[in-house]
Each structure stands twice: as C-alpha cells, then as structure tokens.
C-alpha cells in the first residue's frame, strides 16, 4: 500500500519533468502530449491490523512481537510496583474484529507467571506440580463474539504473589477480512475495556505460614477492581 502511494505521488512529477525537458524550443509543441494516467485512488480496503500500545503505566494490554498483520497477540502486563495472584478482564469490540483462540483451543494463553497448580498435596509428587492439575483459568467470548472474557488465578494461596510487570497471559485478535477488510486503512476499531478484577498480593496468611492467623484471611479477603489500558487498534 505504501509503495502504491509512493508511486502515485512520484510518477506524475517525473513525467512532467521529462516532458518539459523534451519540449524545448524546437517547434514541436503542436504534437499533443499523451494524457498522463490518473493517480491511483487511495485504497478503500484493509488487509491487516495495527496496534499502538497504551502509553500509560499500570495495567495494560501491549502488543506481543509474535503478532502478525492478520493476528494481533496482546500481552496483559501489570503495574511495576505490585504483586498479585491473578487477574481477569472483559474486553468489548463492535464486531469488526474477531477474538481468536490459540492453538490449544483456548481464548487465553497463560505465560507461566502465575502458579496455577496445587502447591502440595497428593498431586505434588517428587516436588513437582502435576501437568494434569486443574487450573482456575477461563476464556470465552459472549454476545455473539463481541465480548472477550478471560481470567487466570492462583487457586492455592500457599503460593506467593507474583510480580505483575511482565507479560502475564495473552489474548489474540484476528483480522476479519470480511468486516475489517472492508474498511479503509487507518480506520480505528473500537476495543473497549469493560471490567477487570485482580487478586491482590496480601490476602491474609498462608495456611502453611509458621504463625498462621486465620483471621487475616477473613479480614483481608479482597478482589480489586482494576482498570486496564487498551491501546489503539486500526486497520492497515
């Protein structure tokens, strides 16, 4: 597209310059000049997605380098100064993009920061957590595909909270050639944050703490509403 634009602007100028040079004063002006072709029209359709990361600290969705023109992979990154135990969010589109599944068939791809398995117990043989453990991870679309809802949470409070300023998990958005492809390049595609909830670092004592105080669990039970910044998504 860019190449076309470039040619659309450059070629007429060069032709005029060449024609001027050929004209001179040799009396052949009567000869009609060939009509220059009209400049190609600006493209009216798109072939991919472009995403600009939000320029704010805190919770945000940033583009993962594995993204392609037709599939945008977004990493959820948290604030630099906090730790947490899991987060979930809802993200809405107007239907012009498709929230995509990863190769395992899920709408969420965990990146291993949160400790999703059981820390001990019968499934922790030889000091390892079983791969077949049950994880508190959900991902789905609702409202005809317009609402993405995902979440990954540590179910075992004996795990410590994890730092949040790294990619925690991913979601993906596919370019829809039928819908977004019909839009002009540069068209902004609405991608709206709806709601997010995060399990904070301090939720009371761990049951295996040396001085376990069960009342701390009651007193510090809390799931925080947080806001996730979303960047700008446009067609290209």
């Amino acid at each position: 597209m860019r190449i076309l634009n470039l040619f659309g602007r450059v070629i007429p100028v060069v032709l005029i310059a060449l024609l001027g040079a050929c004209g001179g004063s040799d009396g052949i002006r009567d000869t009609p000049l060939p009509t220059p072709p009209p400049p190609p029209a600006p493209p009216t359709t798109s072939s991919g997605l472009a995403y600009t990361d939000p320029q704010v600290p805190g919770w945000r969705l940033v583009r993962d380098p594995s993204s392609t023109a037709t599939q945008l992979v977004l990493n959820l990154v948290g604030p630099a100064d906090q730790k947490g135990r899991g987060v979930g969010f809802n993200l809405r589109s107007d239907g012009s993009v498709k929230f995509a599944k990863f190769s395992d068939g899920s709408y969420i791809h965990d990146l291993g920061v949160f400790k999703l398995g059981n820390k001990t117990g019968p499934v922790a043989i030889n000091g390892e957590t079983a791969a077949q453990d049950i994880y508190a991870v959900l991902g789905a679309v609702k409202d005809g595909g317009k609402l993405l809802t995902v979440g990954a949470y540590q179910k075992d409070r004996r795990w410590p909270a994890q730092r949040l300023d790294v990619p925690l998990y991913q979601v993906a958005i596919d370019f829809d050639p039928q819908v977004a492809g019909a839009l002009k390049p540069g068209t902004r595609l609405p991608l709206t944050f709806v709601r997010a909830r995060s399990i904070p670092e301090d939720i009371g004592d761990s049951p295996d703490a040396p001085k376990f105080d069960p009342y701390t669990i009651l007193n510090k039970y809390r799931i925080d509403d947080v806001t996730i910044a979303v960047g700008t998504l446009v067609t290209q």
């Binding site: 979930g88 409070r157 709601r195 399990i199 939720i203 799931i223």
Partner: peptide, 12 residues
Amino acid sequence: DALDMADIAMLA
C-alpha cells in the same frame, strides 16, 4: 464471565 473465577480461586 471469567471474573467469577476470581471468587472461586480465592475461596479454594
């Protein structure tokens, strides 16, 4: 929605 799982995880 997936946010309901936060409560489940907290109570687990």
